[in-house]
Computed example of a mutant assay.
Amino acid sequence: MSYLVTSNFSVGVGGRYWAMWTKKHSDTTCTGCGPDPISVDELGSEKYSMERWGTFLQASYKFN
């Protein structure tokens, strides 16, 4: 949102939300750097999630 205080000066505020997640059985670890890598699924029942949010405030002045 923004608000025009005068014809040259304005202020604004905003927000943002972002989320990301996985389903179960989303973790597979590959070990071994040789020609025959070994895939280990020890953590296969893990589920990951992340949420981020933020707000911001801005001001603007326009010179003639």
Rank of each mutant, 00 (worst) to 15 (best):
M1K: 08
M1W: 04
M1C: 08
S2E: 14
S2F: 11
Y3K: 02
L4E: 12
T6G: 02
S7E: 13
N8T: 07
F9M: 02
S10Q: 06
V11S: 01
V11M: 06
G12P: 00
G12V: 02
G12Y: 08
G12N: 03
G14R: 03
G14M: 04
G15R: 04
G15K: 03
R16Q: 14
Y17F: 12
Y17K: 09
Y17G: 05
W18I: 13
W18C: 07
A19N: 09
M20E: 13
W21S: 10
W21I: 01
W21P: 00
T22F: 00
T22M: 03
K23W: 07
K24S: 08
H25K: 13
H25Q: 08
H25A: 12
S26K: 05
S26L: 04
D27W: 05
D27R: 06
D27V: 10
D27K: 06
T28K: 13
T28V: 08
T28D: 10
T29R: 05
T29E: 15
T29Y: 06
C30A: 13
T31M: 11
T31P: 00
T31N: 12
G32A: 05
G32V: 02
G32I: 01
G34I: 02
P35Y: 10
D36F: 09
D36H: 09
D36G: 10
P37S: 12
P37W: 04
I38S: 10
V40R: 07
V40L: 14
V40Q: 13
D41S: 06
E42M: 06
L43T: 07
L43I: 04
L43E: 10
S45D: 12
S45V: 05
E46H: 15
E46A: 15
K47I: 11
K47Q: 14
K47R: 14
K47C: 08
K47F: 01
Y48D: 08
Y48I: 11
S49R: 15
S49V: 04
M50P: 00
E51W: 06
R52S: 14
W53T: 04
W53R: 07
T55G: 14
T55R: 09
T55E: 12
T55I: 15
F56W: 12
F56R: 07
L57C: 10
Q58G: 12
Q58Y: 13
A59C: 10
A59Q: 07
K62F: 01
K62R: 15
F63G: 01
F63H: 02
N64F: 04
N64C: 05
